[in-house]
């Protein structure tokens, strides 16, 4: 399946998608959850905030 990243609008391709699967956008690296296979749809799967250091 091929669909659009909701974060950066980049193209995300998944060979054998399963609902609930977590994938990474190849462009912006955000984690995405497959919320629907047909029609294909992805939603942001926010990671836990990390202390990135300042």
């Amino acid at each position: 399946m091929e669909t659009e990243c909701p974060e950066c609008a980049g193209t995300v391709s998944i060979a054998a998608p399963e609902k609930g699967e977590i994938v990474e956008c190849p462009e912006c690296g955000v984690e995405l959850e497959v919320v629907s296979v047909s029609p294909p749809a992805l939603a942001l799967a926010p990671e836990e905030e990390e202390d990135w250091g300042e």
């Binding site: 974060e7 950066c8 462009e27 912006c28 690296g29 955000v30 990671e47 990135w52």
Partner: peptide
């Protein structure tokens, strides 16, 4: 390269 990521260093 476009570099704008949500995680990592």
């Amino acid at each position: 390269r476009l570099v704008k990521e949500n995680s990592g260093v």
